[in-house]
Design a protein around this nucleic acid. Structure first.
Lengths: 342, 342
DNA sequence: TGTCAGCACTCTCATGGGGTGAGTGCCAGC
DNA sequence: GCTGGCACTCACCCCATGAGAGTGCTGACA
């Protein structure tokens, strides 16, 4: 069975009409609305062909056609990359991402809000991962008697800290010297590459404060490996409840579960490639919880480093054209914003 | 119209039965199920009295009674404070809050999860507010050329930091000295009391680094006043979708909006008094968005300071007995956990 | 005076059947 | 290969019907 020009046209028309109306699309409707110059009967036979190819289906005998996940996939692959976002949307995005944002977390949070309100789907933005950033310095800062605060700073200004217990007999000067020594030796490393061995090496000589070093090392090893899971900004999950596919409370509950269990989304986003806009449709999602959804995502950069991922989660019946354009534009502007700011 | 013993009994029975079944409660049903020793006819006349008092209502002529918000209020005020949580629940809470938790954020997050899974409603936990904590030290830590990281640490180990720009001609030693000077002078202050004037005073003399001081002051003034809004942990919003009162997508969307706009919940929680378990029912909520919900909340402490608030949001038809017991127990155990840990 | 059985009445909700309309598949003719 | 015609299939709306739940009222009784 070949996929000729008419099949393309009909598939596209069915998909777009279904996206618009959320209803099964009939042949007559299509013949009138789209100006295909053939009769409904012809369209019917074309549709039958598309159904045989697995791109369309219909819920019951006398209903119109709806696309299958595979149908959406073919449709999406037909889309011309680089279709621009409406000028008004572009302006809105630039306005809201261009202001004087004080903190990095504010920028990514703002990006999530924009995407959600613009597309009326749920948005997810993974903040720049700690691991990809460049280690700048470690500071162990005394906090009262036997407590101190250990802070790692990266060259792009992110920081992560935690309180640690101090062994007896350590002075503020000791801590200062220690901080300086470690900072000097590890500067320029990727945070993700701060392995236990490496720390051991860098600290090895300063054996005088053995127990303190152990505490710091234990923290770095555990937190940087595990706690480095990037922070997610999720916005607009409620929009999904308006979609007819999530009308039944069970379906709604199931999809909201995804947004409450951040690890699921984090894993899904992690699959996005570094280049271009990535689309994962329904059953294509590795994660069962997302099988009734589609994900449109893109990677952004933070300065010269890999930043994180921005994405949209919606029903498989998603407005892909708009979603793709919005995700791409937001990812680009986010990269711009992070090139010049904190 | 007096509120005699029979009215109490009937009101309680109606409320508890309605909470259980989510259906209007009829007189016959009540007479059989509860062992009130009167006939359905008598119960009917009692119900009519309760309705006249505004505590019950009925959706249509031939339906049973359901409580009004005011009815729930009277019911709730009748509950004996101090009813214990089932032993199994208590054990579960102790187990999950008692482990070796690494960070304060982990404890509050865990508390939110426990409450949500235990009650099957949505839970909200406000992390200890920065403002109530005691200022410990300020550190301005160099980050590359003309950038530095300003970090405030509180005596309980919380920290908040942000990058600032350095004016020319400042050395690491200058920063150290400055940090030390400010720390010394402000130690012991409540963070919330770090007003602009106070900072001005504390820094006044070190006028050599005027522009740096300005940057630090600007940050402190803005962020500590505004950004000090405590972080909220929200969990289990999806549970609400299972409640019949949120069946209609519009109702569901409206209630989920509350959970996506943290400021709404933060404001609602802020109204909780420091002592005891606080209940706010339906129309009692100042915030219109919460008018179809009830909120059960309690304040916990962090060491010797006021900590934050734990709460549950559910339908007005909430299992108040269990909710109150769960909130109280979690708040108490959370206070315990924060007394002894980071 | 409070309680209760009896009764008429009201209203919701589930059920089922008929009609309507949208849409299909197939076929014969151009 | 396209098209008009036609029979057929369902989903869905509408409406009538009846069952069931629950109420309010009344009059009798202790």
């Amino acid at each position: 069975m070949q996929f000729d020009a008419r099949k393309r046209t009909v598939l596209r028309a069915v998909v777009e009409e279904h996206i618009r109306s959320a209803e099964p699309v009939g042949s007559e409707h299509l013949a009138v609305r789209e100006h295909l110059r053939v009769s409904p009967a012809t369209i019917r036979s074309t549709m039958a062909g598309l159904e045989e190819m697995g791109l369309l289906t219909h819920p019951h005998t006398s209903a119109g056609r709806i696309p299958t996940d595979q149908g959406y996939r073919v449709y999406v692959d037909m889309l011309v990359e680089g279709e621009p976002l409406p000028a008004a949307d572009r302006q809105e995005i630039r306005r809201r991402l261009g202001g004087t944002l004080e903190e990095r977390a504010e920028v990514t949070d703002q990006a999530a809000r924009i995407l959600a309100s613009l597309t009326q789907y749920a948005s997810v933005v993974a903040a720049p991962g700690f691991q990809h950033q460049t280690f700048q310095s470690l500071h162990v800062v005394p906090l009262g008697e036997r407590r101190a605060l250990a802070v790692i700073a990266t060259s792009s200004g992110a920081l992560q800290g935690r309180p640690i217990d101090l062994p007896e007999g350590i002075t503020a000067e000791d801590l200062d010297a220690l901080s300086r020594a470690i900072s000097q030796r590890l500067q320029g490393c990727r945070v993700g590459e701060l392995t236990y061995q490496r720390l051991e090496q860098a600290m090895g000589e300063a054996s005088r404060h053995h127990r303190l070093l152990e505490a710091v090392k234990a923290w770095l090893r555990r937190d940087l490996a595990r706690g480095a899971r990037p922070r997610l900004h999720i916005e607009g999950a409620r929009h999904l409840l308006r979609e007819p596919e999530f009308r039944q409370p069970e379906a709604a509950t199931r999809v909201l579960e995804v947004f409450e269990e951040e690890s699921i989304l984090a894993e899904a986003l992690a699959a996005a490639p570094v280049e271009g806009v990535w689309i994962s449709i329904g059953a294509e999602n590795r994660l069962a919880e997302l099988r009734s959804c589609s994900l449109v995502a893109a990677t952004y950069s933070a300065g010269d480093e890999i930043g994180g991922t921005v994405g949209i989660v919606g029903p498989t019946r998603m407005r892909y054209r708009h979603a793709v354009a919005a995700v791409r534009y937001v990812a680009d502007r986010l990269s711009d914003a992070l090139r010049t700011s904190p």
